[in-house]
Design a protein around this nucleic acid. Structure first.
Lengths: 206, 206, 206, 206
DNA sequence: GATGAATGAGGCTTCATTCAT
DNA sequence: AATGAATGAAGCCTCATTCAT
């Protein structure tokens, strides 16, 4: 069935997501203030008016777009954590690799981070929401694993146990690198991940 | 020459910097697109026309402002590295502490990073310049120290030696934390620095 | 025929009037240009499309609404004039009181006057129609009574006989007062009517 | 000196009034909502931006325009009242004639009344201001004269003494007539004034 | 008959930029 | 050097109107 023959009702169900996807691209390219809603509309294959039929204002489009693109990878992370096997070292290694790959390679979450950095001041609820739904849960996930490793006597009780963010920081660096330098200065993610994991695990080892 | 004339001359000489300082504050608060040159002028105590006397266009004001606020801390870092004493472990510890403190607490460089992230696409030369004048030198500085430590047999030849960025990543995390959450979610920088340094040094140790 | 069908039919028959009533309220509150047909529809409990089913365009809704709300009180006035008894003075007194009460207290005709004043330029036919169907007949009604009173020797042949509008002007003033000041500056209509009638009758008396 | 050679400073002093005069014409022709600020600008010989240089928003233009056009005729009325001579009857006669002529023939105040009627709901301060600065003082002026006439035994103590608005109501009727019918249905103002004055004076006479 | 998704022209407002003074 | 009046392009948003369902 071609998209032209879709019923209006079906299209209505799909429109908002189409608009938000288009908005994502435009906001990524030009930033919040410099993107024109008309371009968003054109990219989504509708007209200005249609955007306003679904969203109150430009701010709302932005907020919903971030929400839309924040469909978190947390459930996946939890699943990875559960199905992880072997020593705590091996489990942590696996989880770190999984997380870095996500942070570094997932364009959506990378750009969401850019939005939080550049427009967070204008959209504080978005920031708070991100903290609650993304940052804290991820930290918790890692903290659990490390605490268990410490309890099992596999990791030493390093001060880093209280700042598991440290473990994620190399991943964030890659993400930031990508945000700032794009593809101009390339990065061997695999080697970097190996190096980071090596350093971290060695740093945690007893 | 009357003192009034002198004052006027002195003021004239300071004008551009005053304007750039004002621009910094406005750009920090509203982002590139959303700041009005008129507000910049008002904050600097001049009028729009004066801004245009010193700078061609809004883009130029932004670029010059970033340049102005990028007065790098590299010379300081080099000095610190030179006057550092003791084992390589101790030297690295000192340098890391110094760097984290700068990255985390220096508002100017923090906000410059925000500008690079949010407006880098619009100002690629700025990004390149930053890479050349800031990122690479800093990486080199650390790489030298670590290579020396390895050569001296104090550090193992970890894969991280090829990615000394890893060592700076916890500092960047604090910086990012501050950019996104401001002062809302506080952070014990000292404890975090100790934990990071501990992890890193342990990870590098033979 | 099920009662439901009947209800539907009945409702259908009432729809236009319901829409016009809703339109009246919205036009009163916001004026012609500033009222949105969507709000009219919502107030009438239908959707925009339905409004367009019954009326060609916004202008038509307005015109029909004014017509709908202009269901004149002239028949009532004529009846009052007919059943009036006593001297011409008493009859005029009664008719004046009746007219003032209507002009001053009937919200519909008051607001119709507002529409004529504010949108008359855009709807000249409405104005002409009002003149023919409302203004002239009312003037005639009064003129007849006064002429009869003059003929009967009860009133002097004052110049005002040629301008019976004068007699209605105090009523109009109350109406205007209400249009401009609403209920904020109150007005003792009864006392005002008595005062006006007293002045007029005395002015007409021989 | 041609208008082109006027200095910018001089022009700045004149611009606001020029814009407000232009705004008056446009608002009169189309009403508040339907006039485009761009047309106001064009009529004033400037561009949209200039209007916004002098006035915050369309609402402000309207308010200031009403204020500008409300330069009251009260001082003139007071002067007329002072220099009036003869019996109270003659003085009242003169004042009424003067007032009617103003109300009926002064286009500015007539249209201001139209604005109060059509847009008063949107600009309540304007209405209140008009009441304080225009309506009440005028009423007072007439009340003083009538009270004096009553005290002097020239007028009877009619109930109308408490509602001197009655005296102005014929003038208002002419004004309204003009607002609604424009020049289409003409009106012999002089004759009407004579008729009204005759009726009123006779009504007040002892 | 009725709905409501979609359109697109049009108006308000902002602001980078210019230039006469 | 500095001012600030003036411009005009551009963007946000509204809403009368249409039409497929």
């Amino acid at each position: 069935m071609s998209s032209e023959t879709k019923t209006r009702r079906r299209r209505k169900a799909e429109r908002p997501a189409e608009i938000l996807d288009a908005a994502f691209e435009e906001f990524v390219q030009h930033g919040y203030s410099a993107t024109r809603l008309e371009d968003v509309a054109a990219r989504a294959g509708v007209t200005k008016g249609t955007v306003y039929f679904y969203f109150d204002a430009k701010e709302r489009v932005f907020e919903e777009m971030v929400r839309h693109k924040s469909q978190t990878f947390l459930p996946d992370l939890a699943m990875q954590a559960e199905k992880a096997e072997g020593s705590y070292t091996e489990r942590l290694q696996a989880l770190v690799a999984y997380t870095y790959a996500h942070i570094a390679e997932n364009r959506d979450s990378r750009e969401v981070l850019r939005f939080l950095i550049s427009e967070g001041g204008r959209f504080p609820e978005l920031v708070d929401r991100h903290y609650d739904e993304f940052v804290m849960p991820m930290i918790d996930q890692f903290k659990q694993l490390i605490d268990a490793g410490v309890a099992a006597g596999e990791f030493r009780d390093a001060p880093a146990s209280e700042f598991v963010e440290i473990i994620m920081s190399p991943g964030l660096l890659v993400c930031l690198w990508s945000l700032v330098f794009g593809t101009r200065k390339h990065f061997d993610l695999d080697a970097f991940t190996r190096a980071s994991t090596d350093l971290i695990l060695r740093g945690l080892a007893k």
